[in-house]
Nucleic acid binder design. Sequence first.
DNA 1: ACATATATTATAATTATTCTAAACTATTGA
DNA 2: TCAATAGTTTAGAATAATTATAATATATGT
Lengths: 142, 142
Amino acid sequence: MLKNSEFIDKLRSSGLRPTKQRLKICEVLFNRDKTFHFTINDLAKIISAKLNEKISLATIYNTVHAFKNKGYLKEISINSDKSYFDTNITNHHHFFDEDTNQLIDCNKGDIETINIKNNITGKKINSVEVLIKVASDNQNQK
Amino acid sequence: MLKNSEFIDKLRSSGLRPTKQRLKICEVLFNRDKTFHFTINDLAKIISAKLNEKISLATIYNTVHAFKNKGYLKEISINSDKSYFDTNITNHHHFFDEDTNQLIDCNKGDIETINIKNNITGKKINSVEVLIKVASDNQNQK
DNA sequence: ACATATATTATAATTATTCTAAACTATTGA
DNA sequence: TCAATAGTTTAGAATAATTATAATATATGT
């Protein structure tokens, strides 16, 4: 359980002012034992359920993007009707359960390290993401 | 250069009626030497530029989805605001150039085969997609 | 050619996201 | 401590991608 002052330091250290809203969002996102995968809509729902005061949707978007830009969140690429975010910012990959629309982290060892032998000339690799789409065994077509 | 009758057979064989619109879209998509990566908007532009008659946007969406469901197109997940499709339906992976928003196929040999050691219990793997995001070497932040 | 199932179309509706501009707040430094 | 200011929040409007609707048109089997 992280303290408020730790979040304040974290925000200040990356040039973000520690506002009431950002601290609340920090609590929701980072006061967890396990990795948290979410969409903006998920987050908005959790916030409005947990909080007495409300946070504007625009602020939630702003904050999530600010946290992503500062490297506190990763954005995950899934069939793009909406964006998914991940509080696990280490290098890792994902399963996506098409039955439930849930993201699940791959553990180290689930996949061998991806080895890229040829890159596009003149470009640098920003990220390598593996997405394994899974579904229940008895359904044929998505 | 495929003939119209070949597209008619292709469509019929998968239970899709060969309509004027679908045949035109087949020509645009499949009469190519190289893999074609596109968004719906790209396709709509090409169609309206090339064709004397116009095809409704709704039809373009319907057709692309029908072709995807029949396995003639693959949808590629990019963390983004729109869907990308690929006429290359073989198992392969992608580079995504963040400078130009262009998708580029990985060639066999660019990446070693992805080896998944542990899957989620009770689920079957539908796809494994690797996306390598690249950008110009001299730009720091996206 | 006829009946019917399937497609196409324009348009409206929906959804996720970004923009805007005004009100508000944290920080800096006098 | 307080004012100036730079950064934030906010509601709501705007935008963009996509899906739904329902009327019209077309393909197919008999």
